[in-house]
Design a protein around this nucleic acid. Structure first.
Lengths: 199, 199, 199, 199
DNA sequence: CATGAATGAGACTTCATTCAT
DNA sequence: TATGAATGAAGTCTCATTCAT
């Protein structure tokens, strides 16, 4: 009971952190902002987290773990490489669809921040790239994918395309309706696998 | 003469700023760090720039202008759409090749920072996406590219792939030798236009 | 019965406080440290003591009362002034011998802290000096001690010498073996009464 | 000129720090108090000192160096051991006489604070004890002082007596008029060398 | 009695910016 | 132009104390 209450409090603070980080960016949000948003006392944030940075770390780690699992899981299925890439893209896009703030924070503050936080989680981030690369490499081995494009290279390309899509939605540069989210996954895989050229 | 000296001083400070921004990130570099690196007095930075942020702005604007020009220029040539995309990719990759610190700063601190600075330069950033989208759209019109993938969508995808490549080099996640830079452009265009699928 | 249990708890907390105060100093120990060391819940400290400062106060008062009693008691005996001073020195030295942490805390945090706590207990502290001064004064009256050195002055001198000795042991600046403790009392009285000069 | 101004500023801040440390104790004084007392801006304290603790360190080190030099100097003269001890006592007493606040701070916050700061300067503090011990030891060798009292022991005793005297003045427990200061040195040496016993 | 979550004032330190020289 | 001292707002983190259970 007490345990559960504590867990709830953590959640409450984490959720608030997502909102304010998304709104103002990590550097511009003061711990007081998180506390205010969570409607708890200032000090309580430090009761549950050792530092502001640590709040961000937990946010990232929790979500990224799910992505790594999703990649791993789909990789172990019997699907075609294209289908697997579709699952990965779908997972990321859905992550954004159902919690855009969280994905915004993760991308803007962690994944794309080469300095500071990015470095801390580099291994985890890279694990995702490697997971995608494995899917590509397997596709190359079984003759589905061409061999003249390095799997790691292709993986970066693929992941970069997805992230940029999210960026476009985040920035409001490309339309991001429910319908767009629905289409995006398929469109993305098609673009990457079949190419832009007309056949 | 005096003018030139002044211009030189600005350059000296800008160059130093690139180095320290790349090394520590914008938020972690103090104005003193820039001055130290430039080997000028603390206050001189404020003699030439109105604020720390303004140094970054100038860094970004100068470089991004060249990219916009390059996109615009290639778009006005008679090349094929694929060649045009190649020129764009090449320009960005070469930018990194010849001044990795500057590109790192631009990407990490501006282009990918949805909050803070990103917002300020959103129009300029979007102009590049639009420029690329135009190349794609023209390719669709003349029958070079398929029509079932939205040009804006394709543009984001294409640009995201390039930026992720740079990120990979910046983070040290994928090899970044001279040879890799040489190949990257061609490989990238091929991957995006022809797709990963084996034919 | 319940009373005893409560008393035990208090003791448990006081003993823990002595340890951590001795180890980290009063200002650097958090209430949580005391609770941890005592192996009791955080809030329990406040159940038994009204504040952190109060814990220290009680520690000091309990011990200092014994010293005052010891001085008073020996003063009422028929011993020579020298013997009385020996008893006082012996009491303090033994206090350190059998509970070095407690004496360390008392000296470092109370007795020698002119600001904060020192002020609070000034009267009690001074009572000890006065008690020693009385022994000296009586010795002067009965012709045992010389008259040209003010009794209060001599008292300060005598007490200061003892405390510095303890400081030396606390700091590890002079050897503090069992044998040293044994000798210290006698040596101290001899030095103070007979002087350093060779006769 | 600029250099001198800077040195003056440091002095100004140090002097202010002495006042407030003496008044409120180190732990109870906020950096703002120092700045206010010095009549400078908050941040200037950090322009000249890396931390509040560092201000205290400098205060101590500057003064203690003089003491060590005084001990060393008198030790190299042809005076009798008693005279040498008199010079040492005189130096410390005069230090208090002419700058009671500084000596109060040094004694209360450094010399007698076994934890925290005391530890940092232990070597320097001990050097003084050793310097006094050398004077005693030399006196024992040349037959001036008795041999049955260890020189280190005697040194602690002597220094402790002086410091306790200052403490008495600081606390207001013993009278501290100009006349008392004048007498104190002689009285102290007499008490320590000749002893309290009537002959 | 006992627990430990919750509160929030407070202090240190940083650093962008200004300004006198 | 050039210097770097001076300013002070802002933000992180700590921790004594309170309080609900």
């Amino acid at each position: 009971m007490a345990r559960e209450a504590a867990t709830e409090r953590r959640r409450q603070i984490l959720d608030a952190a997502v909102k304010v980080f998304a709104r103002q960016g990590f550097h511009s949000t003061r711990v007081a902002d998180i506390a205010d948003e969570a409607d708890v006392a200032y000090g309580l944030v430090y009761h549950y987290f050792s530092s502001k940075e640590n709040v961000l770390n937990e946010l990232f780690t929790q979500r990224w773990k799910l992505l790594l699992e999703a990649i791993d899981e789909t990789d172990r299925t019997e699907s075609t490489p294209q289908q697997k890439l579709g699952v990965v893209a779908g997972f990321i896009i859905d992550s954004y669809r159902y919690d855009p703030d969280l994905m915004k924070v993760i991308i803007v503050e962690v994944t794309r921040a080469a300095n500071s936080f990015g470095r801390t989680h580099l291994d985890q981030i890279n694990a995702a790239y490697k997971g995608i690369a494995k899917i590509v490499a397997d596709g190359q081995k079984d003759g589905t994918f061409r061999n003249d494009i390095d799997a790691d290279f292709a993986s970066m390309t693929f992941y970069g395309a997805i992230e940029q899509l999210l960026s476009g939605w985040i920035f409001g540069l490309i339309p991001g309706s429910e319908r767009d989210f629905d289409e995006a996954q398929e469109l993305l895989v098609r673009a990457m696998c079949e190419g832009l050229d007309k056949r």
